[in-house]
Amino acid sequence: MVGLSLGEKHFIQGGIAQDLRCDGRKRLTYRPIYVETGVIPQANGSARVRMGATDVIASVKAELGKPNPFQPDKGKVSIFVDCSPTAAPTFEGRGGEELSTELSAALHRCLLGGKSGAGAGIDLSSLVVVEGKICWDLYIDGLVVSSDGNLLDALGAAIKAALSNTGIPRVSVAASAPGDDEPEVDISDEEFLQFDTSGVPVIVTLTKVGKHYIVDATTEEESQMSSAVSISINRQGHICGLTKRGGAGVDPSIILDMISVAKHVSEQLLNQLDSEIAAAEAVNEES
């Protein structure tokens, strides 16, 4: 991307100070969000989310595996984000790896809660089949196809949509003799259990430019930021994860203020996202 000239930088900063951004939005308005579900037929669940020019695809695959010995009644979830070089030429080869690990770690923190599993957006105990022996391993894969800022929000929304599209096949466990290490399981091809996504949080990124915060920054606006805070909030208004990115130091009272602003914005975003996901699922059902 070509750098911004001084005039352009002043334009962006001045506009944000006057509550008027480059594309005409207000400070706390999101770009129009398009959600499509079921884009990857081979996966158990998938979704594609477009926010302006940012385009991400998320897919969920479920495989049977052994649960963690420290947590025998919970399934396992692993999140992996890949930045495709189609998004930016700098992502070629290993260039996108740093951004990938950062996004994966942030998503992991926001969606999976503390180590003991409390506060997790995904209910891990619903993934267990035979306690201690067999559980579902969920592999959530994200792919950044095109990047125009605000990747974390888009990925969060895509994962939420993909999870609501996910169908876990019904498993019937054959009665086995006690002490059997590998009980026989029969995975049905017909029946699917829909995943419960009412607890899955949504991620809101607030970018601080000058003295004001904006929501859903484009790449040019992100290059002008002094710092950014990504907050993951669920439907009850509880904060499930918070990451501060970006260099400059920030007064703690400002962070608390950002949290309350994010709560306010997240309600609207949750409603909008839910309606988009429902619409996408309805389109899926018809076709």
């Binding site: 081979q42 695959k61 495989e63 890949d82 495709s84 080869g93 592999y139 792919l143």
Partner: peptide, 19 residues
């Protein structure tokens, strides 16, 4: 030119998308 496959593109999930 660079060619990469998405993790979810094949039936079994691929571990290493590139390289």
């Amino acid at each position: 030119c660079e060619y990469s496959m998405a993790n979810f593109s094949t039936g079994d999930r691929m571990r290493k998308p590139k390289g």
